[in-house]
Amino acid sequence: MKTKTSQANTLPQLEPQTRPAASQTRRILRHLLRKRSAQIGGVIFLTLIFMALFGPLVIPYDPFDIHVEQRLQPPSLQHIFGTDEQGRDLFSRIIFGARYALQIMLITTVIGAAGGLLLGLPSAYFGGAADMLVMRLMDVMLGFPYILLILAIVAIIGPSLENAMIAIGVAGIPSFARLARSAILVVKEQDFVTAERALGGGNTRIMFRTVLPNILSPIIVYISLTMPTAVLAAAALSFVGLGAQPPMPEWGAMLVNARDFMVTAPWVVLAPGLTIFVVTLGINLFGNALRDVLDPRDTTSQKS
């Protein structure tokens, strides 16, 4: 449905990697760490990972402990983010919730990227009828509004955080498939691929050993851009009550369920709202830096 040029243009451009992978990685890292946005984004992302792994060890209160008599207390020394409508410590809940945010981002991305690659890779590599079929299927999926598709899937398999993640992941497959496909279409005509094919390399081997590594950079960049959307999509699901199950302190659910306190107890809304905001911002910053580094053409133009 899309044209070759249109796809190639929307996506980060790529150059086949010819140098050994290890030094390549090191070069990229060096470039990356020099960028301010990568530094900020990296720190935010590392903090998120730290919170997800060690959060329960450092939180001051039990994030599930209800003290109704202390409900809706503004931020204070005792409760730095204040308390929610059940009198639970918001700071502890936010930290504890980091694991869910991380889970959502990772699992949806893995489903989306793996599904997209498994469909896009052979489809683009072999072309022909299979390609046609897969791409039409992706067009069908893209035809549904993203969030309605997620809603419909959750309505079928039942609401829970796990199912929400599956639905968000599945809804992300078509974009990944398209992205992978357009990248592969460029790569597969490159000399080193045709050379390997001429040498009699097996299709599967060429696909996964030669083509795949060469299209990784646009995929990685795209992942960094879609990860935050998954958290926002989970929040949208909570808006209709099909997101995380109580008492799970998932940020999106916390934000959505507290939205009517915006005026009377703004901290209940701001705590998850700003957290989502900062984390999303961090990953976006990191993703942009990554894009600049991985995308040589863009990098040169940025340097000039």
Partner: peptide
């Protein structure tokens, strides 16, 4: 969910664990 969260804590207080399940 807010009612259920309190009930969950109340029941846990007397030694009974519940898992909250919501669907539309």
């Amino acid at each position: 969910p807010r009612t259920l969260e309190v009930i969950q804590q109340n029941f846990l207080d007397v030694g009974i664990e519940i898992e909250i399940k919501l669907s539309d």
